[in-house]
């Protein structure tokens, strides 16, 4: 065996770069879904590598539900500016006008209108024919079977039983007008790989990932951060200050914090290695019903 064997992170990096270049070469109008989270940060870093010395030949798209943590929005704008990239921010204005919030309509209806519908509208409006997403196969059971190039119908639907076979590193990019492909360059990464890579490459991430004292309320066994005065407090609920951090960042009332003292990257990774709670349990949307992620994906959620 030759001594030049690549480490697992090097192989994952090369695979992601290969995928991104295929998309840039084969599609007319690709876009990168940018959710501001750590996976998006890694995906964006890989895009910078893939096309260097050119800039990534596609814009970033952020679907803003208006319920993102304020630090996330700040980080998003700083990142786009720092890297000199086009950033498209899209909000479902009809949803806003209809007064849809996670509190008034429940997390399921809210997610459908402000995320799934908003995303579909944005993709159709800009006529994007390929959209990168940072999803990983280890996140959730239905993701484990998703292709790297995942075909979507004109209505953005996903048919898990009728996926194109995907062999070697040969991706079938052919679609008809109106159809599109969701592309997942981080498919084969695990959460630990993501953290190790952030550490190795020194990739900037939203400070919310690091433990700090923040105001939270305990609700259904989860710690919800009080990011602004839009969070309705129940009877007897008083925000208290705790040392917390986030393992995953979504919309603030739907994403729970965890108590932690991990304030540096090595400490986070160390905590990861002994962690006993998987990542998506910090997101309330997956608890709604069995197989709920598969259902959302069929409807066009990322």
């Amino acid at each position: 065996m030759s001594g030049s064997r690549l480490t697992h992170l090097k192989r994952l990096e090369a695979e992601a770069i290969h995928i991104m270049r295929e998309v840039a070469a084969e599609f007319r109008n690709p876009v990168m879904l940018y959710s501001i989270g750590k996976d998006s940060s890694v995906m964006l870093h890989l895009a910078m590598k893939a096309f260097h010395p050119s800039k990534p030949p596609f814009p970033l798209l952020h679907v803003d539900t208006t319920w993102k943590f304020r630090e996330m929005i700040r980080f998003r704008d700083d990142t786009a500016k720092r890297l000199g990239l086009d950033l498209i921010v899209h909000t479902n204005q009809e949803g806003v006008a209809a007064g849809i919030t996670p509190f008034t309509h429940g997390s399921s209806a809210y997610t459908h209108v402000m995320k799934t519908e908003a995303l579909k509208t944005a993709l159709s409006f800009y006529k994007f024919d390929a959209a990168f997403g940072g999803a990983r196969r280890d996140e959730e059971k239905s993701r484990a079977k998703e292709r790297i190039f995942s075909f979507r119908t004109e209505n953005h639907g996903w048919d898990p039983k009728n996926q194109r076979p995907e062999l070697w590193n040969l991706y079938n990019a052919r679609i008809r007008p109106g159809e599109s492909i969701r592309v997942f360059p981080l498919s084969n990464w695990t959460e630990l790989d993501i953290w190790q890579y952030i550490l190795k490459e020194d990739i900037p991430i939203v400070p919310l990932y690091f433990a700090a004292e923040r105001p939270v309320v305990a609700r259904d066994g989860m710690l919800i951060m009080v990011d602004d005065d839009r969070l309705p407090l129940g009877a007897g609920e008083v925000p208290e200050t705790k040392m917390v951090r986030f393992r995953t960042l979504g919309c603030y009332p739907l994403t729970a914090a965890m108590e932690s003292r991990a304030a540096t990257l090595p400490e986070i990774v160390e905590e990861m290695l002994i962690a006993r709670t998987s990542e998506r349990s910090g997101r309330l949307i997956d608890h709604d019903e069995a197989g709920s992620m598969e259902k959302k994906k069929r409807e066009g959620y990322f």
Partner: peptide, 28 residues
């Protein structure tokens, strides 16, 4: 743990390729 899609769970069979990940101290 590994049969992901609803239809498979109902039929009790695996119908598509699924990818799983684990690591030891030596290898991913």
């Amino acid at each position: 743990l590994v049969d992901g899609l609803e239809a498979e769970r109902e039929q009790g069979i695996t119908i598509d390729v699924a990818y799983r990940f684990f690591a030891t101290d030596r290898r991913k």
